[in-house]
Computed example of a mutant assay.
Amino acid sequence: MLERHEIEAFLALSEELHFGRTAERLHVSTARISQTVRKLERRVGAPLFARTSRRVEPTALGAQLAQELRPAWEAVGAAVRRAADAGHGRTGTLRVAFAGPAAGQLLIGVAERFRERLPGWEATLREAELVDRIRLLRAGEVDLVFAEYPLREPDLVPGPVLVSEPRMIALPAGHPLAQQDAVTPEELAGIPLVRLPAAVPESFRADRTPARTPAGRPIPSGPEGGTLNEILTLVGAGRAAFPLGAQARRYHPRPDVTYRPLTGAPPVRWGLLHHRDRATHATEAFHHAAQDLLGTAD
C-alpha cells in the first residue's frame, strides 16, 4: 500500500512538474520529494517521471497512474472532510425563506450549488410573505431570507445584490396611464399607491410607496395590501397602482392589470439577508453559491 505522503508527493509533482515548487507546496525539502518519488518508482518497478536538467515530465506509466489515482485520492479526502465536518458539527440543514415563483426557481439552483460546496448540508426552502420572513429570521426559524432591497434594519445584514431588474408600475388595465408605453415617476402623482402594512420595514415602504415624486409632488396613499395577491387585486379593481420588478409580468399576468416600465426609476434589487448574531460558514457558503450561479461574484 502507498503511504499518504507518497501519494501527495506523486500527485503534486504530476501537476507542478517541478521538484522545487512541489516541495514548497507540500512544505518539505526538495530532497524529500526526490527520495519519495525514487522510492515509489522502485516499488512500481519503472520510472514515473522523465527528468532532465531543465524539465520534469511524467512517463506514459506515470501519467496513467496519476489519472487513475487522483479521483480515488480526492474521494478519500472528501470522505475525511465529511467525517470531520460531522465530528465538529459542521453538517446540518440551512433554512431559507422566500416568496414567489421567480425566487423559488432561482433558489432551487442555488441550493444545488450549495450542496456541492458543503456536501454534508441540505438547504430547505420555505415560502412566506415579507413580514413573516423577517419575523422567522428574527425568531431563528430560518437562517436566510431572500427579499427585495432596501431592508435597513439594525439586526439584519443584507448580502450583496444578486438580482437587479427594471422597475415597473402595475396599473389598472383601464387606467389612462396603462395606454402609454411607459410611465414616469412624476406621473405617479395622479394615482394612489397601494399602502404596505406598518409591520413592513420603513426603508422598504419608503422605496416602494414613496409619499412624493422626485420633484416633490404628493402621491396619494391607497388602500392597504399585505400580500402580492392582495396588492394586485386592489390594482385590478382600479383602486391603486403599485411599483414592482419586471419579473411580475411573467409570473403574475392578470387581465385586469397592466405592467408598464417606470422610466427613470432605480431598478428593483434582490439579495439574501441573515441575522447579525447568526452568521455561519453555511450562510456564507449559500451567499457564495448564489453569487457563483448568478455570476455576481467579485
Rank of each mutant, 00 (worst) to 15 (best):
F286D: 12
V161E: 02
Y259E: 04
A215R: 05
P255F: 05
P101D: 11
L136H: 11
P201V: 08
V142N: 13
A46W: 02
T258M: 07
E116T: 15
L26T: 04
P172C: 10
Q64K: 11
V80G: 00
L13V: 10
G104C: 07
A72S: 05
L177T: 03
T59N: 02
E127P: 08
P220I: 02
L234K: 13
V257C: 07
A23C: 05
G264I: 11
I169G: 07
V157K: 10
R81F: 01
R133D: 14
P266T: 07
R81N: 04
P243V: 09
G120Q: 04
A111G: 12
L11P: 03
R276E: 14
P255V: 13
A86I: 08
R250Y: 11
L125V: 09
S164N: 00
F49H: 03
A99S: 12
L196Y: 12
V161I: 04
H27W: 08
E16I: 06
F146L: 13
R278V: 06
G89T: 04
S14K: 02
L65D: 00
A240H: 07
F204P: 07
I108Y: 11
P261V: 04
T36S: 10
L11D: 03
A237Y: 05
L293Y: 02
G245L: 10
A46R: 15
V28C: 09
P192K: 01
R113W: 06
A83K: 12
A46N: 02
G120H: 01
L130E: 15
D143P: 03
P158H: 06
H18A: 14
H18F: 09
A170G: 09
Q105K: 12
P197H: 11
L65P: 00
R32Q: 13
S53Y: 03
I33N: 07
G109Y: 02
L13N: 08
R217E: 13
P267G: 03
A248W: 15
G245Y: 06
N229S: 14
T36D: 00
L13H: 10
I191R: 12
L177E: 04
